[in-house]
């Protein structure tokens, strides 16, 4: 069983699971999701970038302790840099509420000089920091949770087993469909499909690629639904599982903390608003 759960999540798998033994790996998946949700909600509710920055430091520290910081940082670079650059650049220069000069860059070619304004940078950071909390928290959850364990834990906490099937099957289908799509694309190109033709031709090609892919998938859905029916897919009885996902008192405590953290943040915002 352990061998199954410790294997990487399959060829070209979408879930970037990293096997390990850290405290994040042992935490109940639902508690991880609850903490992620509460941190993101609190970060989004905050009127400035201070609280989200503290939360960001906290999730980064957890990644460091779990030994996944290097990988998280590499993925975060690709995810966060483009939006961070857009936000800081455009709001720093052009936010309509800009009033106070932060600094001036002189002697640039073409534009001459650029004024960077304080309000815009502040606004950009207020938007950016909750997004960073969201990205790191999700990456940390995904990297330390085997998708099958996540599904089992969610069903134990009341998620419909059918919805769990939808997610697991989709995670499995996407790489499969991608492979099939590439095969169809190669086959059509061998028959003379031109991917550099004019836009009308390429649009027509899009439909020609999608149709065989979809009809292939539809034919297998028939078999698949018969297989699922014969395994009691539509039964409403409680399910038993091949393996157990432990739910320790500390996991329950963390879920309570996640809930109370959000309630406290909402109360704080309401009081501040009154």
């Amino acid at each position: 069983m352990d061998a199954l759960l410790n294997a990487p999540a399959g060829r070209g798998g979408l879930f970037d699971y990293q096997p390990g033994e850290s405290f994040l790996h042992h935490m109940n998946p639902v508690s991880k999701l609850a903490l992620t949700g509460s941190f993101v909600t609190v970060a989004l509710l905050s009127p400035s970038y201070r609280v989200p920055s503290v939360l960001f430091a906290l999730v980064i520290a957890s990644c460091l302790l779990a030994g996944i910081l290097g990988r998280v940082a590499r993925l975060l670079g690709g995810l966060a840099l483009p939006i961070a650059a857009s936000l800081l650049f455009f709001h720093g220069l052009f936010n309509p509420r800009n009033e106070t000069r932060l600094f001036v860059v002189d002697g640039l070619p073409v534009v001459g000089r650029i004024v960077v304004w304080e309000e815009g940078i502040r606004f950009a950071l207020t938007i950016l920091t909750p997004l960073l909390v969201l990205m790191v928290a999700i990456l940390a959850t995904v990297m330390t949770t085997h998708p099958k364990k996540l599904a089992v834990a969610m069903v134990e906490k009341g998620l419909s087993p059918r919805l769990a099937y939808v997610f697991m099957a989709a995670l499995q289908f996407i790489p499969e469909m991608r492979d099939q799509a590439e095969a169809i694309l190669d086959a059509q190109q061998a028959r003379g499909l031109d991917v550099r033709a004019n836009i009308r031709r390429r649009f027509r090609a899009f439909v020609d690629l999608l149709t065989p892919l979809l009809i292939g998938m539809l034919i297998t859905t028939e078999t698949r639904s018969l297989a699922l029916e014969s395994r009691g897919f539509t039964r409403r009885n409680p399910r038993t599982f091949l393996f157990e996902v432990p739910d320790r008192p500390v996991d329950r405590a963390l879920r309570w903390f996640a809930g109370l953290f959000v309630v406290a943040a909402v109360a704080w915002r309401v009081v501040a608003w009154l």
Binding site: F173, M177, F206, L213, T221, S225, F233
Partner: peptide, 27 residues
């Protein structure tokens, strides 16, 4: 129905693959 539940992952795949084809066909 069970049939519908089996179709959902296919549609999810199609949503994701749509993006892949637009990249290949430069749309």
């Amino acid at each position: 129905t069970t049939r519908a539940f089996v179709l959902i992952p296919v549609a999810i795949g199609l949503n994701v693959i749509g993006g892949t084809f637009t990249r290949v066909l430069r749309i």
